[in-house]
Amino acid sequence: MNAFRLAGDMTHLLSVVVLLLKIHTIKSCAGISLKTQELYALVFAARYLDLFIHFISLYNTVMKLVFLASSFSIVWYMRRHKIVRRTYDKDHDTFRHHFLVLPCLALALLINERFTFREVMWAFSIYLEAVAILPQLVLLQRTRNIDNLTGQYVFFLGAYRVLYILNWIYRYFTEPHFVHWISWVAGIVQTLLYADFFYYYIMSWKNNVKLELPA
């Protein structure tokens, strides 16, 4: 494993830790989109179908279990926990996330590496992950006071995507057979969605003012 991939996985993990910290210790999910969290739970469930079939490494298995458990527990907290769910900004989290699922499934049926159940689900999870951040970005735009943990959560998620692209470039030159066009194209689209957020995040950090996205 190269340094970019490891750093990418670590920032991904860090984003989950930041979010769980906010939910578990501060008992708040203000500014967090339940729609995005539900999509991530679906993304991991669809992608990690091979969890008990193909063993890659202990690292791989443990990380998959961590992402599955954390994504489902975040959804549980936001829906069922009696204190946390009251902080959920339902009125502003109105993105119709169901409309993202069907086109992604259709695209996965059309464009996949092999027409088998697991490969179609893998492609579906890649496409869905690329757009899963949209409800969160829309909610951020509508939130007047974005708290630091929410900003950091989205920043780490975006950093993870950037590092994965660097990882693919590295692997492309060092591993002759490393070709996954589907994840590359979807990954670049996903990273571009963060560009606007990154711009405002870095500006607010540089000027030492509170993060606020223009409506």
Binding site: H12, I56, F67, Y164, R171, H177, V179, H180
Partner: peptide
Amino acid sequence: ECLIAPKDEL
């Protein structure tokens, strides 16, 4: 032949 790499990423 173009081999597809194993899906070892998360």
